[in-house]
Amino acid sequence: MPKDPDRPRRRYVSPVREAALVATHGRIVDSAAELFASEGYRATTLAAIAARAGVSVPRVNLSGSKPALLVEAYQRRAGGSSLDRPVSDQPELQAMMALPPDEALAAYVAWLSSVHAQSVGLWFALREAAATDPEAATAFEAVERSNDDACTAAVAWAEAQGLLTGDASAEERAQTWSHLASAEPYRHLVVERGWSAERYEQWVRRAIERLVLDLA
């Protein structure tokens, strides 16, 4: 049968080649994450990322722009969640809120410590990049909104569990929780002061109990 010249050609996809491309992209993002976290945004170049990943600069460019690589690196290290996903769709937090209060708080602070351990350097790199790059600024704003939404949901959960005392507003409680859970205290206490993860988790839990749940 003669070939139809107007019929679109079917693109052949090699599973081996696709797997290799995915692996290379992952190596590039991991290399970018390590450099952004240790060197900061401005000091990290595409050439440095390429050298660490063992690829060419044009190959790095195929994986994304510098801010795009930073955003993807942060998403991977901060639990792999989309920056636009609402709290109601985040299974990790929803699973915690389904636990009894004591277990929920213990699970939460352990999760928080783990996320910061993986992503604290990238969070500061993203904040640095947001000052000059619109793409990074959009992503950073999304991170801040997501964190604020998570703390608002946490306060609502605490109220439903009958854990709140005092007359502070829900907004004040959520803002306090957001500060305690942010990257700044983690970097100051763990990275700069050398606190252990266990000590940091105990501090976060006590601070939430005293400053958020009971403000009387």
Rank of each mutant, 00 (worst) to 15 (best):
A131I: 06
S88N: 03
D167P: 01
A33H: 04
L112G: 04
P134F: 01
D30A: 09
R52W: 00
D4Q: 00
A131W: 05
V57Y: 08
A139Y: 09
R210D: 13
E18P: 01
A106K: 11
W203A: 03
P8R: 07
A216N: 15
L126P: 06
Q161S: 06
A98C: 08
I28V: 14
G64V: 10
R52I: 08
S14F: 11
A23S: 13
W195C: 03
E201A: 14
E72T: 15
W177G: 02
R193V: 09
R59P: 03
H179T: 13
Y74R: 06
S14I: 10
L69Q: 01
A32K: 00
W123R: 10
A20H: 15
A129S: 04
A125T: 07
A150K: 11
A131F: 07
D133Y: 01
W203N: 02
G162H: 00
A174P: 03
P91M: 09
P100N: 10
A170G: 15
A32R: 04
R173W: 05
V109M: 08
T165Q: 10
E192R: 14
R76F: 09
S14Y: 10
P67L: 03
P100Y: 15
F140A: 01
A150M: 12
D6A: 11
C151V: 09
E209H: 00
P58M: 08
T45K: 02
H188P: 03
L99E: 12
P185R: 12
D148G: 10
S114N: 09
A207T: 09
A48C: 11
G64P: 07
A37S: 09
L163I: 14
R173A: 02
V13E: 11
V115Y: 01
I49A: 07
P67H: 03
L211E: 05
A156W: 00
W203C: 02
T138S: 04
L126F: 06
D148Y: 08
W203P: 00
S31L: 08
R85L: 14
R76T: 09
F124Q: 02
A43R: 07
R9M: 05
